[in-house]
Amino acid sequence: MEILELYNYWVFAILLMIGFYAVTAKLNLVKKLIGLSLFQSAVFLLYISMGPVEGGTAPIFHADVTGRVFSNPLPSVLILTAIVVGISTLALGLAIIVRIKEAYDSVEENEIRELDRQ
């Protein structure tokens, strides 16, 4: 049981690196963006894992839960903003990829480099 309490952080490390691998090693630009969103999700998981307190509940005051322990609201606030910024950058990135496709007729990094050299 003791060892399982760090499981969240291990999954964070693995997901972060799966995303990083997709961003660096994959040549398809859409795949890179999917990798970037995996990377982001890993960071969300890291922050949210710091929120809960033993025996606590979501930080919403309610008549039934007076005198209870509440979990930390601050990671939630940070990650809410991060999700919003994430979808904004994702939309912009995809729009740029669509324009690249129209200019080069390809979304593979090696083919685009090849066309640039000519």
Binding site: T24, A25, K26, L27, N28, V30, K31, L33, I34, I87, L90, A91, L94, A95, I97, V98, K101, V107, E108, E109, N110, E111
Partner: peptide
């Protein structure tokens, strides 16, 4: 958004990986 972008680009990856 991903599906919208895929309809405008390509449905399959061609090249794969570099420096694996």
């Amino acid at each position: 958004l991903f599906l919208g972008a895929l309809a405008l680009t390509a449905e399959n990856e061609r090249a794969g990986t570099a420096g694996r």
